[in-house]
Design a protein around this nucleic acid. Structure first.
Lengths: 148, 148
DNA sequence: AATATAATTTATAATGATTCTAAAGTAGTG
DNA sequence: CACTACTTTAGAATCATTATAAATTATATT
């Protein structure tokens, strides 16, 4: 999420998100702006579940955002390519603000996810190919646990 | 699932499963035997959901097996190491009769799974390691779609 | 072979994440 | 300001899965 400039002055984060939303054909409502700030105004990748985001909204913000809106917004962002869904268990959906191709460590005890940079994984070579099919993506999950 | 011999005579499949169940501390009920035959009496790996197994039982067998028993049995088999769960989407659980370490192709349109033999994937090398953690498993899903 | 026991099956209810619905609220346009 | 389309919202509906508790069955015991 790099910052942009307008009339020579640094834009406020809020304005960045308003523009981003508008340019995506999404009206910049206060709910969407608030969620954008929580999700994208960070240095590092953020992994979260709906539940997690709901708690963050309750804790860190004044405005009330209904669960339905959280679902709507997260799905809208996913559709626009601002979020990626990650499958780690069947109970809950998890999302990732890093939408580039990359893999994950998964702590099986805590369900905590950690990004693996592309240079951290040697290129994966699939030697078999299925006739009439093409590879769309390759996803690796490295499950880890305490080594004590 | 290799066959074994008893008193010089080839055992019936049913007997094989009765023994397998008993040796696992599971009573060989007709439901469990029936499910074992459907799942394990095959040449190839079998990938299925509970729903799929339920339909098979209705179609191919005389006895009635309740949904609850199907869930119980599949979980018992998983616990005993006879089945492996695979995460391909959040709507349903999928299981695999191939419990060895291996990866999968996933047809994103049909949710069909195809095993990748170990020799079909070049060994995956993770160059980063997390302090205090050890790798438990590495799972690769290669998503494919029609190449037309 | 009948009985006692503990395990298993079953129908049904409960759970919980997600989706749907339709009414009330809000942003953008003129 | 007024209009229209888009959004938000509370609450209901859905659907896979799990829990419950009563009936059934496998196995050990007599």
């Amino acid at each position: 999420m790099e910052n942009t400039y307008k009339l020579g002055k640094k834009m406020k984060n809020k304005d960045v998100f308003v523009e981003k939303l508008r340019s995506s054909g999404l009206r910049p409502t206060k709910q969407r702006i608030q969620i954008s700030e929580l999700l994208f105004d960070r240095k590092n990748t953020f992994h979260f579940s709906i539940d997690h985001l709901n708690n963050l909204l309750k804790k860190k913000t004044k405005i009330k955002v209904s669960l339905a809106t959280i679902y709507n917004t997260v799905h809208a962002f996913k559709k626009k390519g601002y979020l990626k869904e990650i499958l780690i268990n069947r109970e809950k959906s998890y999302f990732d603000t890093n939408t580039s191709d990359h893999h994950h460590f998964l702590n099986v005890k805590t369900n905590e996810l950690i990004d693996l940079k592309n240079e951290d994984v040697e290129k994966i070579k699939i030697k078999k190919n299925l006739p009439g099919k093409k590879i769309k993506s390759i996803e690796v999950i490295v499950k880890v646990e305490n080594s004590n």
